[in-house]
Design a protein around this nucleic acid. Structure first.
Lengths: 351, 351
DNA sequence: ATGAAGTGGGAAAGCGCATTCCCAATGCAT
DNA sequence: ATGCATTGGGAATGCGCTTTCCCACTTCAT
């Protein structure tokens, strides 16, 4: 590690480190053009690259943004990550990445690690959990975030607020209207679908899933339909597949030609819905012929899937971008709203 | 930013900063248990979190790994990123993320930024470019990497080596046998397909695409088939779609029932192939009925796509993991090899 | 001509930590 | 009882940079 230092550059240019710093790394004071040129020359010949760690120490600003996701390979999160990255780039920051598998305990660790690196802000994406076995870890996470905020860090949470964090101005949540949108979706579906509804949900206590379930049920109720059955499985493609296999039996046992017996399945996220579709196909059933199917998120990579999936479109990249800007801006007004929309496609079309 | 410091902890515990450092952040010397306990208590009540920047400065180690990808939302890269993240976590490092849209100029900037942060190693994923308009930027990138390596940084490149970088022990490339695998794929396809082949490739000069094209042609030649036509489009889903629209005309104009006129389309990556499929479907054509279709990469999220895509399976997550470990390990032996395999599915099955 | 205000460079003091070096205290063999 | 090695804590230095603060020196109004 023999990278050259500022004082080496200064010495070569025949100036003081202070002056070199001023010309190379910006400051309120601008040295004379002739001197500046000499310093730049010296820096160039030495291949000088400022040590951001030292700068961070001296300026008490790191230029770092921490991003916490469940799984970076999940298209939901990678879309958000793209937005975060874009915003960070625009604001001349770098992003630190942490993945947690969705466990609050690992989220807490990530926050601590980011705090140690003095990240200027932290963006947390991914559903919260209200399960009792996570209660302890959630409390710890909230405490860690509290501490981080008290020390001047800013945090932006995508989706739902994290329970127990003091609501300071440093802590913002980018609300995703999961419930409202699921409700809209249900109402929309109920207009044409007359048979029973089934919800393929994530584990109970996963807030995002719970909100979507609740909204969907409410939408059905709005439409005068009976509540849907709920199947709880893993909140991913394979969970959807498992549920799909199970539901296939039910579909086969019913009279599919009777509109009032035809099933409409709502997967609480797109990849689950895709898992359901795969399972049904596996069992010789066709969508929408034998059952309707809808998802949530409108994942970009799934749009070429056939039958095209009815879903709720969420501006994921924009959400990531928004969350990031929110943690960087000082205007505490106008909690920027995320707007999604019901997108009906073939998977809930006529059989 | 009022985070408490080591000396505050030390003062509260009634010891010197040196001692506090030794107990809290590990050292060859271990203070007495009774003292250690006191320090730990103090740290706890103050909510002390070590300043990683300061530690990095003092120890000349940052604990950072830089990851450079074209686009984090692309499932190819996000799969690799998952592997990098897993390895980093295992080795107690954090990952810094940079996206570059595939331009060498931005890659160079990312390397410089990582160097400034004193990242211990850098993993670069994504195809190289040999296009003449990128030549200058490539040279700059190579120079930047050279400098980084000379200063003790380690770099791991996924795919092809970057031209012009001095081959030191700090610089390693995780070779992906694109050409060999494409060749295998072509040979395998040629066993059953008797009609003409068309390659939907990325822009000329994109190394990954070029390698796959070359390998495929070689495979066809091995099998005694004439070389395939090549369509150059953008190396993404929309590029594939564009090519698909064009090819649809050709397919419609041919006698699809004649086996020796049926087209087999090779998209040089999976998302391009999906784009082609979407376009053909759009034009009322069916795969594999009206044409065969194959891709490359075996993207996880595309496996539920129907018709199931014949492709070349690449252990993307493992590649990311490998690249990372490679830059962290000191044993310079055994250039760990990536092994892929041809995976035939329905999209190239019988019409 | 003289003092006040303004310019522009350098010296020096940290930023928060690790680590070397020093030193007092202890244990042990002789 | 004496000398030597060993142990364990603290003082001090430095990592590479930013930023006050200070100090010539120049400019301008009076």
């Amino acid at each position: 590690m023999t990278a050259s230092t500022l004082s080496e550059v200064a010495k070569l240019a025949g100036v003081s480190p202070a002056t070199a710093s001023r010309v190379l790394n910006g400051s309120a004071r601008t040295p004379a053009p002739e001197i500046a040129e000499r310093v730049r020359q010296a820096a160039d010949t030495l291949g000088y690259i400022a040590n951001a760690q030292a700068q961070g120490l001296a300026k008490a600003r790191s230029g770092l943004i921490g991003l916490i996701v469940h799984d970076i390979a999940d298209p939901y999160f990678s879309a958000i990550a793209r937005g975060v990255q874009a915003a960070a780039r625009q604001e001349r920051r770098m992003v630190l990445l942490a993945t947690t598998n969705g466990t609050p305990a690992e989220e807490k660790e990530a926050v601590a690690a980011f705090a140690a690196r003095r990240a200027e802000s932290i963006v947390i994406a991914g559903s919260r959990s209200t399960r009792s076995e996570d209660a302890r870890a959630n409390t710890d996470l909230a405490a860690e975030l509290d501490r981080y905020c008290r020390n001047g860090g800013r945090v932006g949470v995508v989706g739902q607020a994290i329970l127990g964090v003091a609501e300071t101005d440093n802590y913002r949540t980018i609300a995703v209207p999961n419930e409202q949108l699921a409700r809209d979706l249900a109402r929309e579906l109920a207009r044409t679908h007359k048979g029973p509804f089934v919800i393929v949900a994530g584990p109970e206590g996963l807030t995002t899933s719970d909100e979507r379930v609740m909204g969907f049920q409410r939408g059905l109720s709005d439409a005068g339909q009976p509540a849907a059955d709920i199947v709880h499985v893993a909140f991913n493609r394979n969970g959807g597949f498992d549920a799909g296999i199970e539901l296939a039996w039910r579909i086969k046992a019913s009279d599919r030609s009777a509109p009032d017996q035809r099933l409409c399945i709502f997967g609480t996220n797109d990849v689950m819905a895709i898992g359901v579709a795969a399972a049904l196909r596996d069992q010789g059933l066709r969508v929408p012929h034998d059952a309707s199917l809808a998802g949530f998120d409108d994942i970009e990579w799934l749009r070429d899937f056939r039958p095209a999936l009815s879903t709720v479109s969420l501006p994921l990249e924009e959400i990531g971008r928004l969350a990031t800007m929110e943690t960087l801006s000082n205007d505490n007004g106008g909690a920027a709203a995320v707007v999604g929309s019901v997108t009906l496609r073939r998977s809930t079309g006529s059989p």
